[in-house]
Design a protein around this nucleic acid. Sequence first.
DNA 1: TGTTATTTGGGTAATTCGGGTG
DNA 2: CCTGTCCGAATTACCCAAATAA
Lengths: 69, 69
Amino acid sequence: MSVHGDSEVLLTPAEVASMFRVDPKTVTRWAKAGKLSSIRTLGGHRRYKESEVQALLGAASDDADHADS
Amino acid sequence: MSVHGDSEVLLTPAEVASMFRVDPKTVTRWAKAGKLSSIRTLGGHRRYKESEVQALLGAASDDADHADS
DNA sequence: TGTTATTTGGGTAATTCGGGTG
DNA sequence: CCTGTCCGAATTACCCAAATAA
């Protein structure tokens, strides 16, 4: 393993926004709302875990009605 | 810029609606009916894969007669 | 040390959601 | 069966200037 410790890949707000096709400001709102965990740089900028973002993105569904058989 | 490149491009409901010349509401119905897969933002808004939309748009059919299979 | 791009923060329009109706 | 529209509520997008990141 490297000196960076584990494979903790951090993403910038622009990266996350691009992946969700939303505005970077929206990602900031998600972080403020506690919907997405964020790590702060010493200057106050936010960074997001790629693993968490990927997990949320994987929530793609067809949203079809699968009530009956 | 980083070379993180998004693996898939997502479209907003308005974008898809414009491409099909229908109301965004209709696109939502397609997603609800399972005819179109959708990814949700953390706020609940839907995003659609451009590749899937393009595939459907390119699925030009002659519409001759599809009564029997 | 300086330059360029990004992020932050607050406030206001535009879009989308969901259900119900024609 | 499929689509367009109305409503209220929620979410998201764009405006600015200043600070941070690389």
